[in-house]
Amino acid sequence: MIDRIASLGRTGLDVIASLGRSGRFLVGTLAGVPQPRVGLPLLIRQLYSVGVLSLAIIIVSGLFIGMVLGLQGFTILSDYGSEAAIGQMIALTLLRELGPVVTALLFAGRAGSALTAEIGLMKATEQLSSMEMMGVDPLRRVIAPRLWAGFIAMPILALIFSVVGIWGGMLVSVEWLGVFEGSFWANMQSSVEFVDDVINGVIKSIVFGFVCSWIAVYQGYDCIPTSAGISSATTKTVVYSSLAVLGLDFVLTAVMFGNF
């Protein structure tokens, strides 16, 4: 019994210590003056692998989610004779919730795990150490561009996701199910507020982008440099990112859309 309590306490301390380490890690990564001449090409390369390479999965998922929303929404709304409100429903769902959240979940699975594995492998093959021995700070050279890339790519991906989703929803409801196109758009435009819905969605995805890439690079940097360590770090990245995104989504939604 005493043992169990002691091990519980130890686990708690471990969690707190690792939180502290990740905070120090973040400060070390972001501290210092950015050097555009060195940093920009590195950032662009990371934007390519984190952002552009995630486009395919984002577009395909966005399309399908929009189409499903169109189908489901039509079935429910047509019971009340208000199919015209489907545009509003699709747009608000995507902009406020599904766009940022699903993008973040897909990002964690696609780009986050890749980041963790890549950095973990660099650690295991002593590339980070050797960089340090060459007088180059790996936090700024390797980690910082990846962190920023995730941070920048996420809102862009979420916006693209929402647009594709709305288009997919329109495809189903207007083209296939025969909702009048004019009322589809008019309803949407009268209910969607640019600042309240679009910008708040973007803010959400910026927060998610930051958290997801932070978790991903930290897990990679902090992993045990063996193949087992890397694989468990990759799993942790996906699990922690997903939990953090869903939890934060609740908090952000309460702050942004809750009436208090």
Binding site: L121, T125, E126, Q127, S130, M133, M134, G135, D137
Partner: peptide
């Protein structure tokens, strides 16, 4: 320390080339 390391070279066991 970083300036001192410019005077040091280290050959790692795995080579540690940037992949």
């Amino acid at each position: 320390l970083y300036r001192l390391r410019e005077k040091m070279g280290m050959l790692f066991q795995s080579g540690a080339l940037f992949t």
